[in-house]
Amino acid sequence: MRGTGSYLPDQQVASEELSLAMGLAAGWIEDRTGIRHRHVAGSGQAASDLAAGAARRALEAAGLTPQDIGLIVLGTSTPDELGPSTACRVQAVLGAPQAAAFDVAAACTGFVYGLQAAVGWLATQRGKPPYVLVIGVEVYSRFLNTGDRATAALFGDGAAAAVIGPAPPPYGIASMGMGADGTRAGDVLIPAGGSRTPASPGTLASLGHTIHMDARAVRSFIVDVLPRLIAEATDDAGVKPSDLSLVVPHQPNPRLVESLAEHAGLAPGQMVIAGQDVGNIGAASLPYALDRAVRTRGIGEGEVVLLAGFGAGLTWGHTLIVWPPGSI
């Protein structure tokens, strides 16, 4: 991992303001989630604009230019349009003519799935620049029912990115894993707008183009999957949770995720929690937390970092990294 970067829209909405707008006590959202603020994209901003902002910062951190990139993989649930891929929009905005580009539709696990694609490409590609931009981005504010506290209280807009490239042994990615359970696709979804339920006056009237979430089912999934991901990743790598320098999870509810650290065998300070001022930014949540850790704490050569993603689909995945020399 050569460099990371993130981009948040300028507008902030405080949880206190949002709680009052929904007829709740001022501290209701923050007390239950730990979220203080979330960012909201401007009227002229699309997912590709946020993604390009994060990508530029990751490239700057890596000391590279868009011409050095051979592939762009972008995870999102809120693309600019149904087609073409938002990754192609980003390629054009950045000016990265040598980069192939595609989207990954794995919801909040999109960044981890994107890393898997990046590693596979790096292992087989010849003749292209040997660097990949992996991006997570969401503009959830366009897909929220503001009267639904289960979703409106949690979601925000933002983007984060990382530049991936070759690393000398024993550094780099030590293990990866992915999984899915499509029987639970209905737990979190935007039900209208696709080929099954195309847009119509009826779907607009019924708010079918907004996020629908079974909050109880999703909470149960998080409580189960995060400790399991940590256990599976450490078992695969032959290490113990205590050997991990950092665990960087997706954090749809920062307070809930932080409460699972002890159950997963982690000591205070091992888990990176960075969602307090952004909320759940989906595929950008995990790389945003990673970027914050890099820029505030710093990650040293040889430190072992676990990325743990999970989200709608249902999907989940992990990436274990032995931090390479020369990274920011």
Rank of each mutant, 00 (worst) to 15 (best):
R2L: 15
R2C: 14
G5M: 00
A14V: 04
S15F: 05
A26W: 04
R32S: 00
H37A: 04
R38E: 06
H39F: 11
G42P: 06
A46S: 08
L50Q: 14
I72D: 08
I72F: 11
G75A: 03
T78S: 13
E81C: 14
R89G: 05
A92C: 12
L94K: 00
G95F: 07
Q98D: 07
A101K: 08
A101H: 02
F102A: 02
A106W: 08
A106M: 05
T109D: 13
Y113D: 06
L115T: 00
A117H: 12
W121S: 12
L122P: 00
P129N: 05
P130M: 00
V139S: 02
S141Y: 02
L144S: 10
N145R: 13
D148G: 09
A152L: 01
G172S: 07
G179A: 08
D181F: 02
T183R: 07
G186M: 02
G186Q: 14
G186W: 10
G193E: 02
G193M: 07
G194E: 13
R196T: 04
S200V: 14
S200P: 14
G202S: 13
L204I: 14
A205S: 10
H209L: 12
I211T: 14
A215S: 08
I222R: 00
D224G: 04
R228K: 10
I230W: 03
A231R: 13
A233F: 08
V239C: 08
V248R: 09
V248A: 09
P252T: 15
L256R: 10
E258W: 06
E258P: 01
L260N: 11
E262T: 15
H263L: 13
M271W: 05
G279L: 15
G279C: 13
I281P: 04
A283D: 09
T296F: 02
G298M: 12
E303G: 12
V304R: 15
V304N: 03
V305H: 10
L306S: 02
G311Q: 07
G311K: 02
A312Y: 05
L314T: 09
T315C: 11
H318P: 03
P325G: 04
P325F: 04
